[in-house]
Every structure is written in structure tokens, then in C-alpha cells.
């Protein structure tokens, strides 16, 4: 709980689930998306993914997609609010990268 007060940084899991849902996707698809995009660096456990999906549904950042409920696999899609959150996170990360590059590269150049 306390961690979220600091700056509203999303966890990597949260951010990746949001990114995976810029097009309709189901649980397995989200997992594969994350594994492919990170080339296997990040592998999400199904229990963790389930918790993340439920938390994001509760926040209204993603929503169920399509009507078929029982027969087919459940699909999800990012909402407008979810997109806003993801864009804000992207800005934060760009800023962070900019600072890090300046300092880390800068110290490297001096030697």
C-alpha cells in the first residue's frame, strides 16, 4: 500500500498487462505477449496475472471485450482511462531514461 503513495509508478506487470491489451487479448495471449516482447526476461505466473487482471478490472483500466461469456475464452481490452494511465507512465519512464542517460553516459564520457 505505502509504495503507491510515492509517485504512482506502475509495476512492470501492470504496465505490461496494459500494453498487451491495446488489442483484445485473453489471459494466455497476455502471457505470450509479455514473454515475446521481453524475449523471455519477464515470465508472468498465472496466479499473478489473474490478480493483475482483476485489479485492473476493478480500477476500470481494462474491461471485458465482446459478449460471449461462457463458451469462449474471456477477452479483455484497455479502456480510455487505462490508455491515459499508460501514456502517463510512458512519460514518466522517458523522463527517467533521460536523466539516467545523462548521468550514466556523462560519467562514461569523462573517462
Amino acid at each position: 500500500m505505502r509504495d503507491h503513495v510515492k509517485g504512482g509508478a506502475l509495476t512492470e506487470t501492470t504496465f505490461f498487462v496494459l500494453l498487451a491489451l491495446y488489442r483484445p487479448n485473453h489471459g494466455y495471449g497476455i502471457m505470450q505477449f509479455i514473454e515475446q516482447e521481453t524475449k523471455g526476461r519477464l515470465s508472468l505466473g498465472p496466479g499473478t496475472l489473474y490478480g493483475a487482471i482483476n485489479a485492473l478490472l476493478g480500477k476500470g483500466w481494462i474491461a471485458p471485450f465482446g459478449e460471449e461469456q461462457d463458451s469462449r475464452k474471456k477477452l479483455y481490452l484497455i479502456t480510455e482511462e487505462g490508455r491515459r494511465v499508460a501514456e502517463k507512465e510512458l512519460k514518466r519512464l522517458i523522463e527517467l531514461c533521460g536523466i539516467a542517460r545523462k548521468i550514466i553516459k556523462g560519467s562514461g564520457d569523462g573517462e
Binding site: D3, T11, T13, E35, G40, S43, L44, G45, P46, G47, T48, G51, A52
Partner: peptide, 16 residues
């Protein structure tokens, strides 16, 4: 061939 853990995120692991 891929690792199999149900809970991988520290926050989720703590909750579990």
C-alpha cells in the same frame, strides 16, 4: 522448458 511459478510478482507473492 519455461519456468513454472504461479506467483512471480513480489507484491502478489506477499499477498499470497
Amino acid at each position: 522448458g519455461k519456468p513454472f511459478e504461479l506467483h512471480t510478482d513480489p507484491e502478489d507473492l506477499v499477498r499470497y
